[in-house]
Design a protein around this nucleic acid. Structure first.
Length: 216
DNA sequence: AGCCAGGCTACCG
DNA sequence: CGGTAGCATGGC
């Protein structure tokens, strides 16, 4: 919680997950419609190992083509889908992944589905599953990504060889089980990592000491 | 000119 | 069952 409070103090609410290119800081009521839920899911796949700006271009293409609707995305031919999402990279894989998660969403999107069910969907691994559950379904699942691991091992709070579930468990066992908190914390970790743990400054250059270090 | 980005799958030993 | 090559475009 100390880490969370310091990050929130420095950066303020991040407004994740962005919808239609817009963040909504301090408002944890999204998604508000079935289509917005679907947009989060599509974005979660598109941003796999890809910057959000690239994923967003793909999202814009999909929106312009009327494909941010499950039935339409599922019905469109693969070549059209591939071209729309090209800016997000790995477009051959992601086109298949999008169709598989969309089929799942059409079949199960009206009920509450579980983490283990999501993990059976082609193209959905640990982080994508948790992103979908936390930001699309508002279930309290802490999201871990490469940034999270870099920060936590950099601060010496977790072993470098720690796996996904170990990191996830570390957060969930030390925080109140709260959706808004999980959403904000993950977004703040990403923002912080972009500034202190990117290739420009790996957290060890003289002028860029991670201020979290001072707090702990 | 490389390295990296809000990972995942399939295959290797 | 842990480790890793392959997937691909765009930004810096």
């Amino acid at each position: 919680m100390a880490i969370y409070e310091v990050l929130l103090e420095h950066y303020g609410p991040q407004g994740w997950w962005p919808l239609s290119g817009r963040y909504h800081p301090g408002d944890y009521e999204y998604p508000k419609t079935w289509l917005q839920t679907f947009e989060v899911i599509v974005g979660a796949v598109l941003t796999q190992n890809t910057s959000w700006t690239s994923a967003e271009k793909a999202l814009q293409n999909l929106m312009a083509a009327g494909l941010l609707e499950p039935g339409h995305l599922l019905a469109v031919n693969d070549e059209t889908l591939r071209e729309a999402i090209r800016p997000a990279g790995f477009f051959n894989q992601k086109a298949l992944y999008l169709k598989s998660i969309t089929r799942f969403f059409l079949d199960n999107g009206k009920r509450a589905f579980s983490r283990s069910e999501l993990l059976k969907v082609k193209g959905v691994g640990n982080e994508t599953a948790d992103s979908i559950l936390l930001y699309a379904c508002r279930q309290p699942e802490f999201v871990v990504d490469a940034y999270t691991k870099r920060i936590m091992s950099g601060l010496g709070l977790i072993d470098q060889g720690a796996g996904y579930m170990e990191l996830k468990g570390f957060f969930e066992s030390n925080l109140p089980r709260d959706v808004a908190l999980y959403q904000e914390f993950h977004a703040l970790l990403v923002e912080h990592a972009k500034r202190f743990y990117s290739r420009k400054s790996k957290g060890s250059s003289p002028g860029s000491v991670d201020f979290l270090r001072e707090v702990l």
